[in-house]
Simulated assay, not measured.
Amino acid sequence: MKRLMLLVSLLFSLSACATGPKPPASPQLPYDSWYVGLAAPRHMEVWVETVDVLDQRGLRFFHVFGGVASYTGQAEGWHKGGGKMKPVNNVDLPERIFLRWQSLVEPQAYKIRIPIPQWVREEMIKPERGFCQWSKTWETDYRDSITLGMAPGGIVKVWVGGACLDYKEVGRFQAEIEPLGPYIGKSKGQYIPIEPENKAYVEQHGIPYGTW
């Protein structure tokens, strides 16, 4: 009897270990993926080291995007949303976005944690009729894209919008200087080389701080 009880206890223990915690449920979104966009003012060249996401399930995803940004038509001021886009797959709507980048015209490395308010997540799953410029038709669309705009001085602007819908400003944020420098010290202080055109522009016109 004791041997039987021990065997039952062992089998129950093994079953509990095999079951373990359940994996998180897949994101329940009205589309396959949402998007992150990277943008910067014209000539104010940036290099994005990483975009990381903490989603509303509490899961963290690292390096969902990076590299070069797209640029606006002028050095001063902002356009509204858009940017170089990349789909973010199998990630729920963002609760917080972590951004680290190099402002090559200064040069300086910055980092910031950006809180995404609840109203933004609500906008991202709310269907709305909009006029699509590319097809010249009215369609039901979602604001499934978040743009991160980066400017010298560590200024970050965030918008949420969609392909057929206008962009709404989420906020303007001030990043902090990354004390370890570019690539958190791994590049030994070496920044990504700036394009000659952008270097020449800054040498001639300077950096228009305060316009972003």
Rank of each mutant, 00 (worst) to 15 (best):
R3C: 10
L6F: 06
S9M: 15
F12C: 11
K22M: 14
A25S: 11
Y31T: 08
G37D: 04
L38H: 03
R42E: 06
H43T: 09
E49L: 07
D52N: 15
F61N: 00
H63N: 15
G73D: 14
E76D: 12
G77K: 07
H79I: 11
M85C: 01
N90M: 11
V91W: 00
P94A: 01
S103I: 06
E106C: 04
Q108E: 12
Q108N: 11
A109T: 08
R113Q: 11
I116L: 13
P117D: 12
Q118A: 14
W119Q: 08
V120Y: 00
V120N: 01
E122K: 15
E122H: 13
I125L: 10
R129D: 12
F131A: 06
T137H: 12
D141C: 15
Y142V: 07
D144Y: 04
D144L: 03
A151Q: 09
P152K: 02
P152A: 08
G153T: 08
V156S: 06
V156A: 03
V156W: 04
K157R: 15
V158M: 09
G162Y: 05
A163M: 00
C164S: 13
D166K: 02
E169Y: 05
R172G: 06
F173M: 03
E178A: 02
S187F: 00
P196Q: 12
Q204L: 12
I207N: 02
P208M: 07
